[in-house]
Simulated assay, not measured.
Amino acid sequence: MISWEFILLYIAAGSIAGFLAGLLGVGGGVVIIPILMFIFAAQHFPADHMIHIAVGTSLASIMFTSVSSLRVHHEHKAVNWGIVKSITPGILLGTLIGTFIAAKIPAGLLKAFFIVFLFYVATQLLLNIRPKPARQLPGTGGMIAAGGFIGFVSSFVGIGGGAMSVPFMTWSNVKMHNAIGTSAAIGFPIAVAGTVGYVLNGWSASDLPDWCFGFVHLPSLAGLVVASVLLAPFGARAAHKLPVETLKKIFAAFLYIIGIKMLFGTLQ
């Protein structure tokens, strides 16, 4: 049996992640994964599988969170479905490939690159460095490549891709509100492909805890989803009431937090 204190922790994590998903167009994995690691350790999950279960469960929860937040963004006409359509093939391919090799190669080099990328983008947003007016979204090949990269990295760190897709779109002169709304929609194919990959990778793993479906822990997923789906629309509505410059500062702070967290994780 899972005690009520753990269930309440799952719900608390889902509440925070859901609000962030709606507000910033991110999946909330950067909040969910550290909390899940803490709860799983307290439940004495096997150390060899703990991170995989946390990432797999985080991606599974993002399937629901992204749908909840993108509905509100769609109502505000903030989702560019043309971008979603063009980037999704690369997202699906990159995410699936990433899940299958995540457990086979060291992620240190990729994490180091990602940390530098996050700090650069956060500084650009904080200093309000605007993209050149002539810069536009790339063609079909470029969009597939961008989607592949975003999906690949997202599968390694269990996020919905907003930390990369929002900067990518704002660099290409997509308005901030539209970039956040579109990022919420992009999080769905990342989450679907990532969940499938982690389920398949964990299917034959030994010593998994009870109630695991591959590397997805169903009780924690249920707690996360209930709270995140309820809170995501509130975050999405808040995003459309805040000025663009405020959103940029919030997003910059969010990227710094991710980067610092990953930096300390890499140095350990």
Score class of each variant (00 low, 15 high):
residue 144 I to P: 00
residue 225 V to T: 08
residue 229 V to Y: 02
residue 141 G to W: 14
residue 151 G to A: 12
residue 223 G to L: 02
residue 201 N to D: 14
residue 143 M to L: 15
residue 222 A to G: 04
residue 183 S to D: 13
residue 171 W to C: 09
residue 247 L to C: 14
residue 245 E to S: 12
residue 221 L to N: 03
residue 208 L to K: 11
residue 232 A to D: 07
residue 159 I to N: 04
residue 148 G to E: 12
residue 212 C to T: 11
residue 223 G to S: 05
residue 211 W to H: 07
residue 193 A to K: 03
residue 203 W to Q: 05
residue 147 G to Y: 04
residue 184 A to N: 06
residue 234 F to P: 02
residue 175 K to F: 01
residue 218 L to K: 00
residue 254 F to D: 09
residue 167 P to A: 02
residue 230 L to R: 07
residue 151 G to K: 01
residue 235 G to H: 13
residue 175 K to Y: 04
residue 246 T to H: 11
residue 180 I to H: 08
residue 256 Y to L: 13
residue 199 V to C: 12
residue 149 F to T: 05
residue 148 G to L: 15
residue 228 S to W: 12
residue 171 W to R: 10
residue 250 I to P: 08
residue 217 H to F: 10
residue 158 G to H: 03
residue 190 I to Q: 01
residue 238 A to G: 07
residue 185 A to G: 06
residue 182 T to C: 07
residue 247 L to H: 12
residue 236 A to H: 12
residue 178 N to R: 15
residue 154 S to D: 04
residue 151 G to P: 15
residue 167 P to K: 01
residue 167 P to W: 00
residue 209 P to R: 11
residue 237 R to I: 08
residue 200 L to R: 09
residue 249 K to M: 15
residue 246 T to I: 12
residue 219 P to D: 13
residue 139 G to R: 12
residue 226 V to D: 03
residue 171 W to K: 09
residue 138 P to F: 13
residue 160 G to D: 10
residue 232 A to H: 08
residue 164 M to H: 03
residue 185 A to S: 09
residue 152 F to D: 01
residue 169 M to C: 06
residue 195 T to V: 02
residue 256 Y to P: 04
residue 228 S to L: 10
residue 152 F to H: 02
residue 151 G to D: 07
residue 199 V to I: 14
residue 192 V to A: 08
residue 198 Y to K: 03
residue 240 H to C: 14
residue 171 W to I: 06
residue 217 H to T: 01
residue 170 T to H: 06
residue 211 W to G: 03
residue 141 G to M: 09
residue 210 D to P: 01
residue 215 F to A: 02
residue 147 G to E: 08
residue 155 S to N: 06
residue 202 G to P: 00
residue 172 S to L: 06
residue 207 D to W: 05
residue 195 T to N: 01
residue 225 V to S: 01
residue 213 F to E: 00
residue 156 F to Q: 07
residue 245 E to H: 10
residue 241 K to F: 10
residue 187 G to W: 08
residue 207 D to L: 03
residue 173 N to H: 04
residue 257 I to M: 11
residue 233 P to F: 04
residue 162 G to M: 07
residue 239 A to N: 15
residue 157 V to P: 12
residue 177 H to G: 05
residue 188 F to H: 00
residue 232 A to E: 04
residue 190 I to E: 04
residue 161 G to W: 05
residue 200 L to N: 13
residue 170 T to R: 09
residue 138 P to R: 12
residue 164 M to P: 04
residue 212 C to V: 06
residue 201 N to R: 11
residue 223 G to Y: 02
residue 146 A to V: 07
residue 191 A to H: 03
